[in-house]
Computed example of a mutant assay.
Amino acid sequence: MTRLGDLERAVMDVLWDVVPGTSDGVTVREVADALDGRELAYTTVMTVLDRLAGKGMVQREREGRAWRYRPAASREAHIAQLMLDALDLGGSRDAALVRFARSVTGTEAEVLRAALGADAELTGLGSADGGRAPARPGVELTDRVDGPTGRRPADEAVER
Rank of each mutant, 00 (worst) to 15 (best):
Q81K: 13
D129S: 11
F100N: 05
A66H: 01
A53H: 05
E63R: 15
S92H: 12
A118D: 15
T123E: 15
A114Y: 08
L82R: 13
R75M: 05
Q59G: 15
M83T: 01
V104P: 01
V104I: 04
S103Q: 15
V104G: 01
K55W: 01
L97K: 07
L87Y: 07
V58C: 02
L97S: 13
A118K: 10
D94I: 12
R136D: 03
S103H: 15
L97M: 13
G91E: 07
L89I: 09
P134D: 00
E63M: 14
S103P: 03
R102G: 15
M57E: 14
Q59R: 15
R70A: 08
P134C: 02
A86Y: 13
M83E: 13
F100R: 01
E108A: 04
A66S: 11
S74N: 05
L125H: 12
R113N: 01
D88N: 08
A101T: 02
S103M: 09
L52R: 14
R65V: 04
E121F: 11
A133N: 04
R113F: 02
L97P: 09
G126P: 04
L116D: 01
A115M: 03
A133E: 08
T105V: 12
G131N: 00
L82E: 12
L82D: 14
A101G: 03
H78N: 06
R132I: 00
A120I: 08
A80V: 05
A101Y: 04
A53Y: 00
A53T: 09
R93L: 12
A96L: 15
A135Q: 09
E110V: 04
G126I: 03
A128N: 03
A86E: 14
K55L: 02
A66N: 09
G130W: 02
D94H: 13
P134M: 05
V111I: 12
W67D: 07
S92M: 11
Y69W: 13
I79E: 11
T105A: 07
A101D: 01
A53I: 00
G131I: 00
R60W: 01
L52F: 11
A120E: 10
A96Y: 14
Q81A: 10
L87W: 05
R132D: 00
A118H: 13
P71S: 10
T107P: 08
A115N: 00
A66L: 12
L89R: 15
A53Q: 01
G117K: 02
V111F: 13
A53N: 06
A72K: 06
L97R: 11
Y69I: 07
S74F: 09
Q59S: 14
Y69R: 07
A95T: 06
D88V: 02
M83Y: 10
E121P: 06
G131R: 00
T107W: 07
E108T: 07
D119T: 10
L52E: 07
A72C: 10
G130Q: 00
E110P: 00
G64A: 10
A66W: 03
A128E: 06
G64W: 12
P134H: 04
R99C: 15
K55I: 05
R102Y: 10
A109F: 06
I79P: 03
K55M: 00
I79W: 08
S103L: 03
R132P: 00
G126T: 05
Y69V: 10
A73F: 03
P134I: 01
G54C: 08
A114E: 06
G56F: 09
A77I: 04
G106V: 09
V98H: 04
A109C: 09
